[in-house]
Write a protein that binds this DNA or RNA. Sequence first.
DNA 1: AGAATACTTAAGTATCCACTTGACAATCGG
DNA 2: CCGATTGTCAAGTGGATACTTAAGTATTCT
Lengths: 132, 132
Amino acid sequence: MPCLQHNESARTRQGTALPHYMQKKKPNVDRIFHALGDPTRRAIMEKLSEGPISVSRLAEPLDITLAAVVQHLQVLEESGLVQTEKIGRVRTCRIEPAGLSAAAQWIGERRSRWEKRLDRLGDLLAEPDEDD
Amino acid sequence: MPCLQHNESARTRQGTALPHYMQKKKPNVDRIFHALGDPTRRAIMEKLSEGPISVSRLAEPLDITLAAVVQHLQVLEESGLVQTEKIGRVRTCRIEPAGLSAAAQWIGERRSRWEKRLDRLGDLLAEPDEDD
DNA sequence: AGAATACTTAAGTATCCACTTGACAATCGG
DNA sequence: CCGATTGTCAAGTGGATACTTAAGTATTCT
């Protein structure tokens, strides 16, 4: 069970340990982008965007072992990008839209901050006779 | 110069070698998501979203060495997320909006594909008397 | 019941990659 | 011109992680 801990402590945190009450604050963005950082996992998301599918069907086009696919799925599920459900002996996987939304939101925030900055800059260039 | 090759060939490609004429097709999504997969690099993007800034100013809050920051910046620049310009001895870094756009687009495509699927499903449930 | 399917889990390996150190290069300030 | 800033480059290290193999579990088929 202590197998898939990412334990990003070493590099992720800058200073000393976080107080426990803000430990789980937004664990998702970290995990989501880490998950999307792997090309195989993006390929899995690609396939999943076509619709729900079983683990072995997912593995078919991937030319890695089933076991490896399962490991990727665990990462994706823990990050909240994917949701799975086992019925009988087959586990069906589907996209969890909230995960992709969180990623999109992070990107959108940074982008709009940057663009707002550009706008203000534009204003300054347009009216250079305000006080300073 | 052959220092920062990611050389994702082994795992990224599924089958045999790609023909050279489709090698550089969309190298960006891979690099962009790999770049955003690292928390330190996301912190850099965060800071950059406040406006252009020099390398050493960027490094200050990061408690890693300047050299490490430079390496992260190379990854970010090669992925197209960041643009830099050196004037005198100081290199100024800024966000390249096209990079974030590409990431946002990738996410948006998968998300909308998935949601379109859900819509069709909704239609079926709503009108179960169409032919099959 | 026995065989086949569809995963699951654990352990080991090899590669990748974030980071450091240390030496060097170029520019700026007195 | 000398020292201080600001950044660059190369090599090395340790830890993370994508993947494999191999053995095990639970379900379905005949």
